[in-house]
């Protein structure tokens, strides 16, 4: 990464909110180390206010993103894969350091993460046909159902798999037309910040994805009870807080994707299971007649 006689320019890792890269309004940071405990960077430690700002940004971006054509959303997500590919080496380095993986295993994780964007990009304009359709009602009506995004989804990203896991929970939220507020892995946040830089240069409108580095145990509470959040994905919630977050989410009847008992194998075929929880079904009736 560095030449022999050149002092490297280090990156400042910040939050990604509303298309911009602010520091935490709280001024807080925390130390991020590699798997062996060596210092890597100081990451922004997002606060309650940052989480609330992120929800405002996600809500503001929802109309445009959910209203874009499925074809357009697919192209934008594919573009994310394209831009990621160009930063392949950087992701490999960050994943290897943060997760303590060998170079080949880190490469496999980055490859899979890029391919996952491609997979979800291809879903955007097929969901309506697979999950919706015409309903043959017993009367003179045309009746059809279509899947629609539920709105703003708060995602507690997995704590272990810092890139493949993150993409695996974020991409389905976007492919279905939702906007996202993501709390990254606390101890391994660096690939998420680099992903934010990719998103910022990939035609993803500002506010569609908001990435907060920090503590899911802390931020999860504010997001689970926030009245303008429509759904929460508790995948990365600490086991001892997940039930409490689910109870808080009940206050506004949020859709909840529960935390798995153990972090799943992110290389497995995702299926539809991470998209359907964030989709509503709208059914429209109209009379048929002359």
């Amino acid at each position: 990464m560095i030449g022999n006689d050149r002092l490297a320019v280090r990156k400042t890792y910040k939050l990604y909110v509303g298309g911009a890269f602010p520091r935490s309004e709280s001024g807080r940071t925390y130390e991020v180390t590699d798997a062996k405990g060596h210092f890597l960077a100081n990451a922004a430690w997002a606060s309650r206010k940052d989480a609330r700002d992120a929800v405002v940004a996600a809500r503001g971006a929802f109309a445009k993103w959910s209203g874009a054509t499925a074809y357009n959303r697919g192209q934008v997500l594919y573009r994310v894969a394209e831009v990621m590919e160009g930063r392949h080496a950087q992701f490999c380095e960050e994943v290897a350091a943060g997760e303590g993986l060998s170079a080949s295993k880190a490469r496999a994780a980055v490859d899979a993460a890029i391919d996952r964007w491609v997979w979800y990009a291809g879903w955007t304009d097929k969901l309506a046909a697979v999950l919706g359709g015409a309903n043959p009602v017993a009367g003179p009506y045309f009746d059809f159902s279509t899947p629609e995004p539920t709105g703003v989804v708060a995602v507690l990203a997995p704590q272990q798999s810092s890139l493949l896991g993150l993409v695996s929970v974020l991409a389905p939220v976007l492919a279905t037309g939702n906007t996202a507020v993501v709390v990254t892995s606390k101890e391994r946040p660096l690939p998420a910040v680099t992903l934010a830089e990719v998103l910022a240069t990939s035609d993803v409108p500002g506010g569609v994805v908001n990435l907060l580095t920090g503590d899911a145990a802390e931020l999860g509470t504010w997001l689970a009870e926030h009245a303008d959040v429509d759904a929460v994905d508790l995948t990365g919630a600490p086991a001892h807080r997940a039930m409490e977050f689910e109870r808080e989410a009940a206050g506004t009847i949020k859709r909840v994707l529960r935390a798995p008992t153990a972090e799943p194998d992110w290389t497995a075929d995702p299926g539809l299971a991470r998209m359907t929880p964030f989709l509503e079904t709208k059914t429209v009736w109209h009379p048929i007649g002359l």
Partner: peptide
Amino acid sequence: GVVWANTFNKFDPTSPFGGYK
């Protein structure tokens, strides 16, 4: 979740019913 256009309160077992928010 259900939008009735030029009709209202129609139900059918083939037709998904349920709410947003």
